[in-house]
Structures are given as C-alpha cells and as structure tokens.
Design a protein around this nucleic acid. Structure first.
Length: 480
DNA sequence: ACCCATCGCAGTTGTAGAGT
DNA sequence: ACTCTACAACTGCGATGGGT
C-alpha cells in the first residue's frame, strides 16, 4: 500500500520533492498564470471544444469562478470538489470517491489546471487562489512554516515564546557537551527542524547527528543497566559461595588445630566464623535484593563515570607540527654554531647574531613546509619562535612548553650604557669604600659600624662629589 | 628582535562546602 | 556519612600586544 502511494506520487509532477516548490503543507499548482488569464483561456477552450472535454472545462471554470468570487480567495477542498463534480455526472457517479478526489486534485494542480495553492493543515485541506504568477517561493515557505508550527497537537503545544528565547542562555548554563546534547535531543524531539533552524540557528544535520548519538547512548544505558544487574547478582552469589567455602575451611582448620590453640584464639576464630555466617545469611535473606540494588547502582555509576570522562583527551595531540619544527631545525643546522656561551645549553643549537635566522624567517620555513604538506599555515611568528627552548624556566611558556627544544634564541646584545659618566668613578669609589670598610687592616674592621646596601654598580651615589651630576655627558639629572 | 603575560577555545578534573 | 553543586584550575596549543 505504501509502495503504491509511492508509485502514484512519483507520477505527479507537483509532488516532486526535489522541486523548490514542494513543501510539507503546501502544494503549488503547475499552472503558473493569473486567474484572469486562465479564466479567459478556459472560456476560449469551452467555445472551441465539445463533448466531455467541454464539460470538464466548464466544471473547471466554475471552480475558478467560485474561488474568484470568494472574499478569502480560499475554499475547502471538498467544496471545490463538489462544485466540480456537480458539473460532471460521470465523476459524481464514480464508486471510488477517494479516487475521484485524487483525480480532481491532479487535474487542478496540473499545468492545464488552475492557478491555486493546495493547503494541507493536518488533514484539513484547502484550495487557495494564487492570483499572481508564482514569483515568491519564500511566501510559500512562510505559509508552510506557519502551518507547520500550528500542526502540533493541541495537548502538545506549549508557549514557545516563553521558552525559546531562553534556549541560547540555557545552553550556555550547561557546562558539559553531554548536557547540551541532551537539551538538543529534547528540542529536536519536540520542535520542528524548521523552527530550530529559523529561530535558534541549529542546523538540521547537526541536531540529527546529536539526536542519533543521544539515542545510541540511551539504548546503551538500558543495556548497561541490565548488565549491571546481572553482574551484581553474580557478584553476590560469588560472595556467598566464597563465604561458604571460607566458613568450611575455617571450621576444618579449627578442628585440626583446636588442641594447639589457646582459649583466646579459639574464641576469636569462633567470632569470625559467626560473623561470616551472619553476613552470608543476611545476603541470602532479605537484604539480598537491597545488596543487589546497591551493587547494581555502584556498577552503573562506575560505567556512567567512565562514560562521562574523556580521559586522555588532548593528551599526545600535538598541534605543533613536528615536521615544520624539524624543517626549521634542519635549516638551522646548516648555519649552526653550538657553544655554551651565555645561556646556551647542551644539545641546544642557536645562531650568532649576524648570520642567524630570525623568527620571521622561521615562520617562512615552517609555512613553506606546512603548505607543502597541505596544512594550515601559522599566522604569528611568535608561534614558531615559541617552539624553541624557553629561556626563563619560570615563565608560563616554559611551564607549558611543548616544543622539542631543538633551538634556543639569543637575547639581544646588552646595550652600551653611556648615559652617566660617573659609573666609572663610582666603581673606583666602591673599590676604595670596600677596602676601607671591610679589609682586616682597616680601623673599623670587626666593629659592626658599617652597613652596605648594594643594588647595582650604577646605583651608588658617591658622597662628596658632584661629578656626573653637574657635568653629565648626555642626560643631565636635575634634583630639586 | 626577542621575551613574556594574557586571552580564547572547548572542554575536563579536583574539591570545598552545601545539601540531604 | 554520603551526595551534589559550584567553581577554580588545568589542558595544549594559537594568537596578540606590550615590554625590554
């Protein structure tokens, strides 16, 4: 039967679901003319033809007249059908009324039919005059949307305006993707895909994917729950049988060793045996169900927590392209000069300033490699540079460093400080001062009379001189 | 030109403190 | 005593912008 319907549907061009004008609730007639044009056409045909063809033209024309006369330009499909069939006795007498209606529908929706829309609102069918040639598919889409929204059963309806606007915030409130998936599952189960797409921007493909995943999850939950219950039963049986063998073994032991054991030991063993017996009986009797439930719950929870966690996620997933990193290193090696001067470390190569490869070039090398490999290029030169060894061990880069430490960068040369001429004099002063204050031969030595606070070799202010302040070489300092 | 902190992403993990 | 909840910390980078 379904097959039949399918085949019949295929024959009708207006049912072509690939066509842009085929919707769920709206069928657009292939007669793409204005009502007036079509009416005139029909009148001409009626004059030209005769017999049954003429009759059917008359019937069609009268349906069109009715529609034009109707203030709403719309009538129930059945009414239109009776109007039509009333003019055609052979159709009115057809024993299969359903077939007669179908033929009528086919007729009015065909190219030589009437310029109408056929509306199906949950079984209530209408014929609506399409007064203009069809030029606005989006209008039909809107109509379809409205009808789609209204087609929900009355008891299922809820005030969407109260809920819908909060959905984006609700999604944000949920903190795991699983929770969000559940919301999407519920939404896609009760709200039409069109509404989801139009109001929430949720793509049908995406929601369907999520829905499928959650469905699979739910099926698994049921299965796992059953499994957990079975497992728990087995677990309890195992405990009982274990207790049983232990009790028997203990009794055997006790009887063979009784003579050699002291009173206390015997008593303790008896108590142990009694407790084991009690536990066994408890498990076998009323608490068996409870214990089963408890174990099942624990097993279920364990499974759930395993399911929730995504351990190892991201671990070992390096988006640093090791190939690109290596490519840079290979270029570096050609010009590499390994040494331990300054902060260079063993196994780490870096270049001297003049002939070195700067991070800009490193980015170029990396991107050349990435392009060749068909991968996304790196945007920032800092990204590539940071693959190298971090200098400051305490920096965040260093703590999160995931490069292979194939190279290190040289810090820029220390700037020649020549701002103050008195650095030189200060150094001499500090030397004299140290000799006076701390040498063994000094008169103040060992008397705890001197305190020195050293900050930097440029930071001493020499007492008793204005050198460097009144005649600075470059940048005079003015103190008030 | 190098160095470093910070942010964003899209989530996971650990746990103090509240709730039952 | 146990469970739940809220929240901070963390992941493994890429990118940015300010500092030295």
């Amino acid at each position: 039967m379904a097959d039949n319907a399918h085949q019949r549907g295929k024959k009708r061009p207006y049912k072509d679901t690939n066509a842009s004008f085929a919707f769920r609730h709206v069928v657009v007639s292939l007669c793409n003319k204005t009502a007036e044009v079509r009416q005139n056409e029909l009148k001409v045909s009626i004059d030209e033809r005769s017999g049954s063809v003429q009759d059917s033209m008359v019937a069609l024309s009268s349906v069109l007249d009715e529609l034009i006369a109707n203030p709403n330009k719309c009538m129930p499909f059945n009414e239109a059908f009776y109007e039509y069939a009333g003019k055609l006795p052979n159709i009115a007498c057809m024993p299969n009324k359903k077939e007669a209606r179908r033929q009528f529908k086919d007729r009015i929706l065909s190219k030589n039919g009437l310029p109408i829309l056929f509306l199906n609102d949950d079984g209530n069918t209408y014929v609506m005059l399409l007064d203009l040639p069809l030029n606005n598919i989006s209008l039909c889409r809107s109509i379809d949307f409205v009808l789609d929204c209204g087609s929900m059963g009355e008891h299922e309806q809820f005030d969407w305006s109260l809920v819908g606007c909060h959905i984006p915030t609700l999604l944000k409130l949920l903190s795991t993707s699983k929770d969000r998936a559940i919301l999407v599952f519920i939404l896609s189960s009760i709200v039409s895909p069109i509404r989801l797409a139009l109001l929430l921007g949720m793509q049908h493909q995406h929601t369907q994917k999520v829905k499928k995943k959650v469905e699979e999850f739910l099926n698994e939950v049921e299965r796992k729950q059953e499994e957990a219950e079975k497992e728990s039963e087995k677990h309890i049986e195992d405990i009982i049988s274990r207790l049983q063998t232990e009790i028997e073994q203990d009794a055997k032991d006790l009887s063979s060793k009784r003579m050699r054991l002291d009173e206390e030991e015997i008593e303790s063993r008896n108590t142990d045996a009694e407790m084991k017996k009690q536990r066994k009986e408890k498990l076998q009797k009323d608490s068996k169900q409870k214990a089963k439930k408890r174990v099942a719950k624990r097993l279920f929870k364990k499974w759930k927590s395993q399911l929730m966690s995504q351990q190892g996620k991201g671990k070992g997933r390096f988006s640093i392209d090791r190939g690109a990193e290596k490519a840079i290193y290979e270029v570096l090696q050609e010009q590499l000069q390994s040494h331990r001067r300054r902060w260079g470390e063993e196994g780490t190569g870096y270049l001297e300033h003049e002939r070195r490869i700067h991070s800009k070039e490193m980015k170029k090398i990396a991107n050349k490699y990435l392009k060749k490999a068909g991968k996304k290029p790196v945007l920032s030169k800092e990204t590539v540079r940071s693959w190298g060894k971090c200098r400051n061990k305490r920096s965040r880069q260093s703590k999160q460093h995931r490069g292979l430490n194939l190279w290190a960068h040289l810090r820029a040369e220390k700037k020649q400080q020549d701002k103050h001429i008195n650095i030189h004099y200060n150094r001499a002063h500090v030397k004299n001062y140290t000799r006076f204050s701390f040498s063994r031969s000094s008169v103040v030595h060992g008397k705890n009379l001197v305190v020195r606070r050293a900050i930097d070799d440029k930071a001493y202010i020499r007492c008793g001189t204005s050198e460097g302040f009144c005649r600075p070489l470059h940048t005079p300092e003015y103190w008030s």
